[in-house]
Amino acid sequence: MSTSAPQSRSTRAADTDRIQVAQLLTEAAAAGRLPMTEYEDRLAKAYSAQTYADLARLSNDLPGAIPCNKGGPCHPAPSTLLLAIMSGFERRGRWNVPMKLTTFTLFGGGVVDMRYADFTAPEVEIRSYSICGGQTILVPPEVNVEVGGHAVMGSFDHSVPGEGSPGAPRVRIRGFSLWGSVGIKRKKRRNQIEEY
């Protein structure tokens, strides 16, 4: 998990340990080893796990399970810019969500779908800007979301229904829209993980 020194199963787990198990669960679901309902149930439990023993119970029956004393630290994916000028962008399927993501549309559109993505940090900051364009950000049910954006003659969605799970990644979305839109939706996963 997060250190190379042997850990007692009763040792408290870190955010990076929970992220590693969440990634392992996502890989198992993508390979068809876990049905979607079991995957989502285990994922919610992984994000709220307190100890290494809690995490081990969720992943020991899967290939590639991480022993409590052999894991390494998780490193956040590099900051990313998604740009659409008179064009579009899509980020869907399995991808690594960075700690910082900036999206910009100018006379274009974009979609950021985090439902099947691997979170590489417990806190994610998204800066979204739309000028005469539009973009949609899809978050999975367990993720916690904070929104603080502004719109001038456009829209910046502030209503994301539902609450995330305790311990799940927190996504903070900020930015602005000028004659454009930034839509944010909490959406359930389909029956299988899409590989793009």
Rank of each mutant, 00 (worst) to 15 (best):
P35G: 04
A30K: 01
S4H: 15
F119V: 03
T26V: 02
G134S: 06
Y116H: 10
R57G: 07
I126L: 13
A46Q: 08
S48N: 13
F156A: 07
L83S: 08
R190A: 12
D15M: 11
L101Q: 02
T80F: 06
T80S: 08
E123Q: 14
Q192E: 11
S128C: 09
E125W: 11
A29M: 02
N96K: 15
V145D: 12
G180E: 04
A65C: 09
G64N: 09
Q135H: 02
P141W: 05
T26E: 01
I19V: 08
A29R: 03
E125T: 03
G154K: 03
T37Q: 12
S130D: 05
M114W: 05
A31T: 03
A13R: 00
K187P: 10
L101S: 07
A53S: 12
G183H: 14
G183L: 07
E123W: 13
N69H: 11
A121Y: 00
S4N: 08
V182T: 11
A65M: 07
P98D: 08
K70P: 07
Q135E: 11
H158Y: 06
R115L: 06
M114H: 02
I126V: 12
S165M: 04
T37I: 09
Y196T: 09
Y52V: 14
Y196V: 07
G71M: 04
G183I: 08
A151I: 10
A53N: 09
S181I: 07
L34P: 06
G134C: 01
F176A: 06
R174P: 01
P122C: 04
T51G: 02
L81V: 14
F119P: 00
R115S: 08
L43W: 05
G180R: 08
S181E: 02
G148P: 02
A31L: 03
G149L: 03
V147G: 05
D17Y: 06
Q23M: 05
A14P: 03
G167V: 00
Y116S: 08
G110M: 00
M114N: 02
G93I: 00
F156H: 02
T136M: 09
E142Y: 08
C74V: 15
T16M: 06
V171F: 03
V182C: 14
